[in-house]
Amino acid sequence: MHKGIVFAAGAAVVAACLVTVALRRGDGAESVSPVPPSVAAAPAPPAAAAPITVVPITVVPVAAARDPQARDRQLELPDGTFVPTLNGATGALSLGKCWGARPWSPIERIERSDLGIDWYVHADGTRTTTEMKWRDDLRRLDAMTRIAVPQGEPPPLEPRR
């Protein structure tokens, strides 16, 4: 696609629109609350690390995972294999449907966080899990498939307000 042509065509049509309607006014502005003044942020000392539980994983044979009775408690992976869902989840979306375009990274182990949630740990550092969470809109528990990708050092802390 030639961007010059796109630009020329797009600009011409939008410019024509602008000329045609020059009467339309108002930008949808809404009232704005004042923002409190800032002060300097406090330095952040390092905190002690919490223990992490490492658990070996169980790979479920494909045939067993396709048993309808067992399927609800299995998590299908992008490579077509299955592992058990974590944290008692049933009916979680396939990890293959949620993983996205990143190259698949195999599961290496399970870690239990200090809050008692089990996570699969992948070779590239990604953490994945399944959980049941209450949904008021559904009036029942519903499964979630969750993916956490390490992103490295964040920006600085906000100045104290």
Partner: peptide, 14 residues
Amino acid sequence: GPRGSFVMNDFFAT
């Protein structure tokens, strides 16, 4: 850590 970030992706079954 101590500081770090995760890209959190939370998918609903429903």
